[in-house]
Lab assay of single mutants.
Amino acid sequence: LHIEINVNGLRIELHNVSEELAERIREILEKVDDREEARRLAEELIK
């Protein structure tokens, strides 16, 4: 499954994740104000 999410102008592509996991990642990242911090957090979440 390939999912693309957009959060605060940051486009993140997720591969091989469930829709539920992608939604949780999006919800978490929406709470982060700083774009660079959101990017770093996204990288950690999808490892």
Score class of each variant (00 low, 15 high):
residue 1 L to F: 11
residue 1 L to M: 14
residue 1 L to Q: 12
residue 1 L to Y: 10
residue 1 L to I: 14
residue 1 L to C: 06
residue 2 H to S: 13
residue 2 H to C: 14
residue 2 H to T: 15
residue 2 H to A: 11
residue 2 H to M: 14
residue 2 H to K: 11
residue 2 H to G: 09
residue 2 H to Q: 08
residue 3 I to W: 10
residue 3 I to N: 05
residue 3 I to H: 10
residue 3 I to V: 12
residue 3 I to Y: 10
residue 4 E to C: 09
residue 4 E to I: 15
residue 4 E to A: 11
residue 4 E to P: 03
residue 4 E to F: 11
residue 4 E to G: 05
residue 4 E to V: 15
residue 5 I to G: 02
residue 5 I to F: 07
residue 5 I to P: 01
residue 5 I to H: 02
residue 6 N to W: 10
residue 6 N to G: 05
residue 6 N to T: 12
residue 6 N to D: 14
residue 6 N to C: 09
residue 6 N to L: 13
residue 7 V to C: 05
residue 7 V to N: 05
residue 7 V to M: 08
residue 7 V to R: 02
residue 7 V to D: 03
residue 7 V to L: 09
residue 7 V to S: 07
residue 8 N to S: 07
residue 8 N to L: 02
residue 8 N to R: 03
residue 8 N to Q: 06
residue 8 N to P: 06
residue 8 N to T: 04
residue 8 N to M: 02
residue 8 N to Y: 00
residue 8 N to W: 01
residue 9 G to H: 01
residue 9 G to Q: 01
residue 9 G to Y: 01
residue 9 G to A: 02
residue 10 L to W: 13
residue 10 L to F: 14
residue 10 L to G: 03
residue 10 L to I: 15
residue 10 L to D: 05
residue 10 L to M: 13
residue 10 L to C: 08
residue 10 L to N: 10
residue 10 L to A: 02
residue 10 L to V: 15
residue 10 L to H: 15
residue 11 R to V: 15
residue 11 R to L: 14
residue 11 R to I: 15
residue 11 R to C: 04
residue 12 I to R: 00
residue 12 I to C: 03
residue 12 I to W: 14
residue 12 I to A: 02
residue 12 I to K: 00
residue 12 I to P: 01
residue 12 I to G: 01
residue 12 I to V: 11
residue 13 E to R: 04
residue 13 E to T: 12
residue 13 E to C: 08
residue 13 E to H: 07
residue 13 E to S: 07
residue 13 E to K: 04
residue 14 L to S: 01
residue 14 L to K: 00
residue 14 L to D: 01
residue 14 L to M: 11
residue 14 L to Q: 01
residue 14 L to A: 06
residue 15 H to C: 11
residue 15 H to N: 11
residue 15 H to T: 10
residue 15 H to A: 07
residue 15 H to D: 08
residue 15 H to S: 10
residue 16 N to I: 05
residue 16 N to M: 08
residue 16 N to C: 07
residue 17 V to M: 10
residue 17 V to I: 13
residue 17 V to A: 11
residue 17 V to Q: 04
residue 18 S to F: 04
residue 18 S to Y: 04
residue 18 S to D: 08
residue 18 S to T: 15
residue 18 S to Q: 05
residue 18 S to A: 06
residue 19 E to K: 14
residue 19 E to I: 15
residue 19 E to S: 13
residue 19 E to M: 15
residue 19 E to A: 15
residue 19 E to F: 14
residue 20 E to H: 11
residue 20 E to D: 12
residue 20 E to R: 05
residue 20 E to V: 08
residue 20 E to A: 12
residue 21 L to I: 13
residue 21 L to T: 10
residue 21 L to Q: 09
residue 21 L to F: 12
residue 22 A to K: 04
residue 22 A to L: 11
residue 22 A to C: 02
residue 22 A to R: 05
residue 22 A to E: 03
residue 22 A to T: 04
residue 23 E to P: 00
residue 23 E to H: 10
residue 23 E to L: 11
residue 23 E to Q: 13
residue 23 E to V: 10
residue 23 E to N: 13
residue 23 E to T: 10
residue 24 R to S: 09
residue 24 R to I: 12
residue 24 R to Y: 09
residue 24 R to Q: 14
residue 24 R to C: 04
residue 24 R to T: 10
residue 24 R to P: 00
residue 24 R to K: 14
residue 24 R to W: 08
residue 25 I to H: 00
residue 25 I to P: 00
residue 25 I to D: 00
residue 25 I to M: 04
residue 25 I to V: 13
residue 25 I to A: 01
residue 25 I to S: 00
residue 26 R to Y: 10
residue 26 R to W: 09
residue 26 R to I: 12
residue 26 R to D: 01
residue 26 R to F: 07
residue 26 R to T: 06
residue 26 R to P: 00
residue 26 R to M: 10
residue 27 E to K: 10
residue 27 E to T: 07
residue 27 E to S: 07
residue 27 E to M: 08
residue 27 E to G: 06
residue 27 E to N: 11
residue 28 I to R: 04
residue 28 I to F: 05
residue 28 I to H: 03
residue 28 I to T: 06
residue 28 I to N: 01
residue 28 I to P: 00
residue 28 I to L: 13
residue 28 I to Y: 04
residue 29 L to E: 00
residue 29 L to W: 06
residue 29 L to C: 01
residue 29 L to H: 01
residue 29 L to G: 00
residue 29 L to M: 10
residue 29 L to V: 05
residue 30 E to Y: 09
residue 30 E to H: 09
residue 30 E to N: 13
residue 30 E to L: 13
residue 30 E to F: 10
residue 30 E to W: 11
residue 30 E to S: 13
residue 31 K to E: 12
residue 31 K to D: 09
residue 31 K to W: 07
residue 31 K to Q: 13
residue 31 K to A: 13
residue 31 K to L: 12
residue 31 K to F: 11
residue 32 V to H: 10
residue 32 V to F: 11
residue 32 V to W: 08
residue 32 V to S: 07
residue 32 V to L: 10
residue 32 V to K: 02
residue 33 D to I: 15
residue 33 D to A: 13
residue 33 D to W: 13
residue 33 D to N: 14
residue 33 D to K: 15
residue 34 D to S: 08
residue 34 D to C: 01
residue 34 D to H: 03
residue 34 D to V: 03
residue 34 D to Y: 02
residue 34 D to G: 05
residue 34 D to L: 03
residue 34 D to A: 03
residue 35 R to Q: 14
residue 35 R to L: 15
residue 35 R to V: 15
residue 35 R to E: 13
residue 35 R to P: 15
residue 35 R to T: 11
residue 35 R to A: 14
residue 36 E to W: 05
residue 36 E to C: 02
residue 36 E to H: 08
residue 36 E to I: 06
residue 36 E to R: 04
residue 36 E to G: 06
residue 37 E to C: 07
residue 37 E to I: 07
residue 37 E to N: 04
residue 37 E to T: 10
residue 38 A to L: 12
residue 38 A to R: 04
residue 38 A to S: 04
residue 38 A to T: 03
residue 38 A to Q: 08
residue 39 R to D: 03
residue 39 R to Y: 15
residue 39 R to S: 09
residue 39 R to C: 06
residue 39 R to Q: 12
residue 39 R to V: 14
residue 39 R to G: 06
residue 40 R to W: 07
residue 40 R to S: 07
residue 40 R to G: 03
residue 40 R to T: 06
residue 40 R to E: 06
residue 40 R to V: 06
residue 40 R to N: 08
residue 40 R to F: 06
residue 41 L to V: 07
residue 41 L to R: 06
residue 41 L to S: 01
residue 41 L to K: 06
residue 41 L to G: 01
residue 41 L to I: 13
residue 42 A to E: 01
residue 42 A to C: 06
residue 42 A to I: 15
residue 42 A to D: 00
residue 42 A to M: 15
residue 43 E to Q: 10
residue 43 E to W: 13
residue 43 E to N: 09
residue 43 E to T: 08
residue 43 E to R: 04
residue 43 E to Y: 14
residue 43 E to P: 00
residue 43 E to M: 14
residue 43 E to V: 11
residue 44 E to F: 08
residue 44 E to D: 11
residue 44 E to C: 07
residue 44 E to M: 08
residue 44 E to G: 04
residue 44 E to K: 05
residue 44 E to Y: 08
residue 44 E to W: 11
residue 45 L to I: 13
residue 45 L to R: 00
residue 45 L to G: 00
residue 45 L to Y: 07
residue 45 L to E: 05
residue 46 I to G: 02
residue 46 I to C: 09
residue 46 I to Q: 04
residue 46 I to L: 14
residue 46 I to N: 02
residue 46 I to H: 02
residue 46 I to Y: 09
residue 46 I to T: 06
residue 46 I to S: 05
residue 47 K to A: 15
